[in-house]
Design a protein around this nucleic acid. Structure first.
Lengths: 139, 139
DNA sequence: AGCCAATTCTTGACACAGTCAATAATCGGA
DNA sequence: TCCGATTATTGACTGTGTCAAGAATTGGCT
C-alpha cells in the first residue's frame, strides 16, 4: 500500500516524502475531503505539516494524475483518489454531502456536444445537484 | 427593455431600484461576467454602486430565477441571463474564455444517472473543458 | 403631494481558501 | 557520507465573498 504509493511517486519523478505519502493516504481514506480535512488527518498521522505543504502536495498529485480535484459551487475544493474510472458526483443541496455516481451510458456519455464552438474539448465534468436520503427524511 | 425588467422585478415582489436594473442590464450585455465586471459596468452606467449592493442584487436575482450563476473551478462566479433554456458551458483551459453549448440530445440528456444513491436529483450541471479556437492557434 | 414603514443601499470590518516568497530541512544519488 | 536539488516551513498577502449597523430609497396610503 504505502510502498506502492511510493512507487507511484517515483515513477513520476517525484521525491517520496512522509508528507506526500500521508496526504495520499488521507485522501484514499476519506473520499471527497477538503484540503483542511487532509491537513487535520495528516497531522493526526505524522504530527505536523504546514498548510503550504498540503496545498503543494495536493496540487502536484492532481497534476500528476494521482488525485482528482472537484470544485463544487459554494464549497472549497474536494479531493479523491478515484482517478481511472469515469464517474461523476451528486451533491446534496442541504448538507453538502457528496457521493459518487457512475456514468450512465458507456464511458463518456456527455462528451458529445452538438456544436462545440470550435473548442477542442477534452473533458466533460458533470455535477448532479439534489437532496440526499438523509435530508429527504427531515423536510 | 428596461420597463420589462422592472416588471419582472415587481412580479417577484422585489422593489425596482436603479442598481438592480443596472445589474440586470450589465449581465444581459456581457454574458459570463464576474461580479467585479458587473460592478465596473454598473459604475460606468449609473455612477456609483457598492460592492455589497452588487452581490445582494446578483444573489437575489439568481435566487428569483432572473439570472443564472456558474462557478467554474479556478475562477470566480460568472453570471448570465439565459435562464430558460437548457444549455451548458465550455471553458478554455488556457485563457478561461467561456462559451455556451446547447444540449446535445433533447432537453436534459445527462439527468439520467444510473445509480443515484438515493438522492433526489433536480439538476445536472455540465462543464466542458478544452481549448478555445484562439488558443489552439498559438501552442 | 406628502408621510411612513419596509426594503434596499452604503460603509467598513471581517472570514476564508488559496498563493507568494524567502529560508530551512530533507531526499537520494555519487 | 556529502552535496546539490527538491521539498517543507513560516509568515505575509490576495481575492472573493459575507456580516452588521446605520443611512437612503421605494412604494403604498391618506
Amino acid at each position: 500500500m504505502t510502498s506502492s504509493s511510493a512507487h507511484q511517486l517515483r515513477e513520476r519523478g517525484l521525491q517520496v516524502t512522509a508528507q506526500r505519502l500521508a496526504v495520499l493516504r488521507a485522501v484514499a481514506g476519506r473520499p471527497h475531503c477538503t484540503a483542511e480535512e487532509v491537513t487535520e488527518a495528516v497531522r493526526g498521522e505524522i504530527g505536523v505539516i504546514s498548510r503550504q505543504a498540503v496545498y503543494d502536495s495536493l496540487n502536484l498529485l492532481v497534476q500528476k494524475g494521482l488525485l482528482r480535484r472537484i470544485q463544487p459551487a459554494g464549497s472549497s475544493a474536494l479531493y479523491e483518489d478515484r482517478v481511472n474510472d469515469n464517474h461523476h458526483h451528486v451533491i446534496c443541496r442541504r448538507c453538502g454531502q457528496t457521493a459518487d455516481i457512475d456514468c450512465a451510458v458507456g464511458a463518456a456519455p456527455c462528451l458529445n456536444a452538438s456544436s462545440d464552438s470550435g473548442f477542442r474539448i477534452d473533458e466533460a465534468e458533470v455535477i448532479y445537484w439534489g437532496v440526499c436520503p438523509g435530508c429527504l427524511g427531515q423536510p
